[in-house]
Amino acid sequence: MIKLKINGQERNWDGDPDLPLLWFLRDEAGLTGTKYGCGQALCGACTVIVDKQAVRACITSVSDVVGREVTTIEGLHPTGDHPVQKAWRQLNVPQCGYCQVGQIMQAAALLIENPKPTHDQIREAMAGNICRCGTYQRIANAVHLASTGV
């Protein structure tokens, strides 16, 4: 039996310890906010925060996060009003929206590490997250807005 801590809650898993965290979250724990986009750490759609760092849930197995704090979009902020989420809404960032949870989690992790990133630092930190709809200009502006006060 594997014991996990997700968004502050204990969860148990007695299946395959190698199961990617992404599928545990989505299909076993009912936390569907985290998305699948590539399964190979190439797109960032599945980004969650583990102990304050952005992690790709698609190539992280459930056994990898034992004893760590996993935060998904559902646990990012109790009322959904994290500065990054607010900035995203202020700038109407999403188009289809599918990539945006991963983008928001990546941005939130960036701001933990670097509360005042430069434009180039934002572009570098967000470069692992694909948005096929092409919302990049607004993503960069929203991260900047979140870092300077919404």
Binding site: Q40, A41, L42, G44, T47, V50, Q53, A54, V55, R56, I59, T60, D64, V65, Q106, E113, E124, A125, M126, A127, G128, N129
Partner: peptide
Amino acid sequence: MNTLTNPNKLRGF
């Protein structure tokens, strides 16, 4: 476990 401080590293290209 993979920790993506620099997400580019894991891009694979």
